[in-house]
Design a protein around this nucleic acid. Structure first.
Length: 107
DNA sequence: CTCGTGACGGTAT
DNA sequence: TATACCGCCACGA
């Protein structure tokens, strides 16, 4: 957990804005929140939130266009399934084409 | 206080 | 395209 509640709220608020059918990267969320180069904080924020949270964490992926979980883990399959149900397409190598699906978010 | 560890990312090779 | 490194930084042992 991150002690700075303000920062957490900022991250969550931004993530809530990602529309279905689009994805954003950890670094992108951090940058929009005003914390460029602090992508890891976003990962920590999501890791620390409970299962019951309604934050669409599954719409956040890494800058390589891939899911940041081991390919055979439970989390991985859940995230991939949800994203595909929203229209996101995965390539053979498990990558998402950010040119097509990345959310062009702004503050 | 030091160290290892990440739901990360940019650069170099 | 694939590794390897390094910067970054909250946390916990």
């Amino acid at each position: 957990m991150i002690s700075n509640i303000q920062t957490l709220q900022k991250f969550y608020t931004i993530i809530y804005k990602i529309p279905a059918g689009k994805v954003a990267t950890y670094g992108q969320i951090a940058a929009i929140a005003g914390y460029p180069r602090k992508a890891r904080l976003v990962g920590y924020a999501l890791k620390g939130m409970g299962e019951r949270s309604t934050v669409p964490w599954y719409r956040v992926i890494n800058a390589q266009g891939k899911i940041s979980f081991p390919e055979h883990s439970e989390h991985y399959s859940i995230q991939k399934t949800i994203l595909e149900s929203e229209g996101i397409v995965f390539s053979k190598s498990g990558k998402i084409d950010l040119r097509k699906f990345q959310w062009e978010g702004r503050k």
